[in-house]
Design a protein around this nucleic acid. Structure first.
Lengths: 339, 339
DNA sequence: TTGTAAGCGTTATCAG
DNA sequence: CTGATAACGCTTACAA
């Protein structure tokens, strides 16, 4: 910038003003400065700018992972929101570990104006403590009362209960469940929904298998199931595991849904492309991301928004994978999709 | 930091030294400072730090998109590389537009030490000009001679030719092609590979349909194909479009591979889970991302590395979707996967 | 070993 | 309308 000032024969202050379109600059000097800046292809140093302005125009995002269909879809929404607000996104992965999340948090101080953190951990308060009100904080997938400025989540209990109810109504009697990570709040709520729906129907829940929300754990769980009498249906706590499960079962020659019905949770983009298309609890993943970022930006701007804990209600998406073909009087719809 | 200094009864310089483990600090003062810093839960301001240190410990990444299986997988690799080097990732999307990419580039000045940019655009030199050597730059998916410090790409021509050859060898006579965006270099090379393989085999290529690398364009292309006599096989320029194509064909009651064989490009994670599993050109997506970041970091550190344009050779991944079941003497392998 | 002060590249205040 | 100059929060000579 000094160079530009020198060449243009003005002071750095004037350069700054000209570049930022301050009104109090002669048309001549402005033109001159812009010309020189262009010649020297000067690009303002965003780091210095934000130090001076006390604002970075960036939102920090910390997610358990940055890959996989679920996070990919979430990131799509986050990006959308950021674009809408003309903010940058600083993404970081905590790899499912609170301490890593906190470390990421620390490196973001002074780099971002606000934070969107997904913290499905039981000990998520640590995170809020770490931020300590220093920065606007929006939490994702967290239980209520978290002390953040805002929180967005999914009604996991209702979603899981709806899927379970659907499976029971289809006439499936024993339903096996592939669980998520034990310390994951989303997973805990889904399991509760699964159990409560059974209790309400007066049916004994099938076996609950260990899982970690990743595809391979769905695969392994299916292998376990194959060693005993197969259940009528399998409900995986997310679509990724349902995918792995589907794969393992098909490898074993099990026909879905004829031999075993299958359902998942999330409605990730591929769910509808599987064969058979997957019944699942539809979550507006991208939409949640978008709203989270936009809310965060609003907090940064100081727009007094009431602290919220918004809970999105999943919609039951019935596709072919859950159909009970053993039962009479269940005429398959042509496309197999209802909502 | 001033607060810490005041409370600890030392100068800010000492605080800085204590926090950064400078050797010339008494054990006592250090302990004292650390204690106070902890009490006040002081977190260094990364922005100010980098202004002073002239280094941000962050790598900027600009991709056409941040979502979808392909980019998701790429981001996994980028994150891996960044973690290995203990760097942060500043991600941005150019949405397939050079000017947006350049805009993103500008906002990154002073925020990152180096750049990894995916620029499959025909006018990618603009990008290099924009950076103007100010920052180490690693390019992805770019044609050679780009003027960047390093470039990583895929041998698209070889990959597409291999897939085409495979389809021809399977006995498919007319092969339709779903193309990528016209101004995309990867897409251009793949089309060339498709054509050259036909020429080498003395077979006339089937129809080439317009596409944009996204799922829905594969779907539309398939609808077009369904209006005429179906080809023996369809080769989509990437897996996402193959997925869309698969979906449309199946909706129409077309059996794959019996009625029409199908192949894609990339080997995204779901490819093996489709029904039938998808034949494709396997690209080590995540690995490319990891290497790109690590190379970028090395450039930042000034390790004199020779400028490279590394080209990864795709591996032909044959799965069930390309089998010619109309031909005699093609006994299906049990898993249907070979490499 | 520690403190003082200059500097990183901007913006903003305050005189001129 | 424009130019000095003090921040912004940190690091690092240079002095003490």
């Amino acid at each position: 910038m000094r160079d530009v000032a020198r060449v243009a024969g003005v002071s750095v202050a004037t350069v700054s003003r000209a570049l930022n379109g301050s009104s109090s600059v002669t048309g001549d000097t402005r033109a001159q400065v812009l010309r020189v800046a262009n010649e020297l292809n000067f690009v303002p140093h965003a780091g210095a700018q934000s130090l001076s302005l006390q604002r970075t125009d960036a939102i920090g995002v910390i997610l358990p992972d940055l890959h996989g269909e679920y996070f990919s879809e979430l990131i799509r929404g986050l990006d959308l929101g950021a674009r809408n607000c003309r903010k940058n996104l600083l993404l970081s992965a905590s790899h499912g570990d609170v301490s890593e999340a906190i470390a990421a948090l620390r490196t973001m101080r002074g780099r971002v104006d606000g934070l969107v953190v997904m913290s499905p951990f039981t000990d998520g308060e640590l995170l809020v403590d770490a931020v300590n009100g220093a920065t606007p904080l929006v939490l994702l997938s967290t239980q209520a009362g978290s002390g953040a400025d805002a929180a967005f989540g999914v009604d996991n209990h209702a979603g899981a209960a709806a899927v379970t109810r659907h499976l029971l109504e289809e006439g499936h009697r024993t339903i096996a469940y592939i669980n998520g990570p034990a310390d994951n709040l989303d997973a805990q709520e889904r399991l509760r929904g699964f159990r409560d729906a059974h209790a309400a129907a007066g049916v004994k829940p099938g076996p609950v298998l260990r899982g970690n929300f990743r595809e391979d754990s769905g695969f392994s769980a299916a292998l376990l199931l194959l060693q005993k009498t197969l259940p009528d249906a399998v409900f995986a706590a997310n679509d990724a595991m349902a995918l792995g499960c589907l794969h393992a079962l098909r490898n074993a020659g099990v026909r879905i849904p004829h031999d075993v019905a299958l359902a998942g949770f999330d409605d990730i983009p591929v769910a509808r492309f599987l064969d058979p298309p997957l019944t699942t609890a539809g979550v507006p993943i991208a939409e949640i991301g978008r709203q989270a970022v936009e809310r965060c930006v609003r907090l940064v701007q100081g727009d007094a928004v009431a602290p919220t804990h918004a809970l999105f209600a999943p919609t039951l998406v019935v596709r072919a994978s859950s159909r009970n073909t053993r039962r009479a009087g269940a005429p398959p719809s042509p496309t197999g999709e209802t909502t």
